[in-house]
Computed example of a mutant assay.
Amino acid sequence: MELLGAARVRELADRLGLRPTKTWGQNFVIDANTVRRIVRTAQVGPHDDVVEVGPGLGSLTLPLLEAARTVTAVEVDPLLAGQLPLTVTELAPDLADRLHILHADALTVRELPVAPTALVANLPYNVSVPVILSFLARFASLQRVLVMVQLEVAQRLAAAPGSKIYGVPSLKAAWYGEVRLAGTVPRAVFWPVPNVDSGLVALVRHNPPEATASREQVFACIDAAFAQRRKTLRAALAGWAGGADRAEQALRAAGIDPRARGEQLGIDEFARIAAALSPAPESSD
């Protein structure tokens, strides 16, 4: 099957009068080896129903269709959403029935035509973390994620406790699964060429930590801890807990040193804190 190289991508863009926009984070992959590598690294197979966010002109969509059972492409740009099925019909007519197009903003999507097993995408840099976390939250069927994002974002998502770049994205991703940096991608494989490097980040879903706290409670605890990440947890959680003393009591109940900082703890420890810690009830006059 013919994949989209640099010449074909530019030809399509010229035909459509397309000028890539930073607003939607449009940087199109023009290297066939890169998209083959992404599909291979994602371990997409004939039993997978893939969701792809931001398919653009279809560089990654074509090899995904070849490997997967179905591909649901979520595209916010109406021009690209309209062109994608035409490109697939032209270059891979035998695979066209595997493709579902959803013209929508990925951050607002609540339903998909097929329950996805994998999220595989070249994500727009400006919404990459919200897209990953929202799709994991909304679609319990998702078992794997392999996305290309800004390298700094990939490194933050895969960071371990104690690292300078470890923070809220690292912990929230860890709630859903095991995260790793799966490789780097040179700038030259994109058109237009971005001014940052890219990385592949992989996530394999696992059960959330065993705790009585909900995901929302745990995430609220994480947000509070990192809003003032240089402070001790006793101080950082005081506002959310209803006072520093109450925060300390909950931290000790969870087996956490109140002098510790959020960047030292893993997701299991935050789950224990949230289970022991709930905001103080509002007083009424």
Rank of each mutant, 00 (worst) to 15 (best):
82 G>W: 13
171 L>N: 00
76 V>Q: 10
79 L>G: 15
127 V>C: 00
79 L>W: 11
186 P>S: 05
188 A>R: 15
170 S>V: 00
78 P>R: 05
92 A>W: 07
124 P>K: 09
204 V>P: 13
79 L>N: 11
197 D>G: 12
93 P>L: 07
205 R>I: 12
82 G>E: 15
125 Y>P: 02
102 L>Q: 12
138 R>M: 06
218 V>A: 04
192 P>Y: 08
155 Q>N: 14
181 L>E: 00
174 A>T: 05
188 A>M: 13
125 Y>A: 02
190 F>R: 09
85 P>T: 12
213 A>F: 08
133 L>M: 00
194 P>I: 05
142 L>P: 11
152 E>D: 07
118 A>N: 05
175 W>S: 08
188 A>Q: 13
219 F>C: 05
77 D>Q: 12
120 V>A: 08
144 R>C: 04
154 A>W: 12
189 V>T: 03
115 A>T: 10
159 A>R: 12
161 P>D: 05
218 V>C: 07
150 Q>F: 01
191 W>I: 04
112 L>T: 10
94 D>F: 05
168 V>W: 03
91 L>D: 04
94 D>N: 12
117 T>S: 11
182 A>F: 14
114 V>R: 12
145 V>G: 03
98 R>M: 13
105 D>V: 02
160 A>F: 15
199 G>F: 10
137 A>Q: 10
94 D>M: 09
123 L>E: 09
94 D>S: 14
217 Q>N: 04
86 L>S: 11
172 K>D: 12
203 L>N: 08
145 V>C: 11
147 V>R: 07
149 V>P: 07
158 A>Y: 02
218 V>N: 02
77 D>V: 11
76 V>W: 08
215 R>E: 14
114 V>I: 08
171 L>F: 01
209 P>W: 03
213 A>W: 01
76 V>A: 13
204 V>W: 14
188 A>G: 13
74 V>M: 03
183 G>Q: 08
173 A>L: 04
154 A>H: 02
215 R>G: 10
152 E>H: 02
104 A>N: 06
196 V>E: 03
156 R>L: 11
214 S>H: 10
163 S>F: 15
136 L>G: 02
208 P>Y: 04
75 E>V: 03
131 V>C: 01
124 P>S: 00
76 V>L: 15
96 A>N: 01
133 L>D: 02
202 A>Y: 15
99 L>C: 06
164 K>N: 13
212 T>P: 15
173 A>I: 00
214 S>G: 12
139 F>C: 08
127 V>W: 01
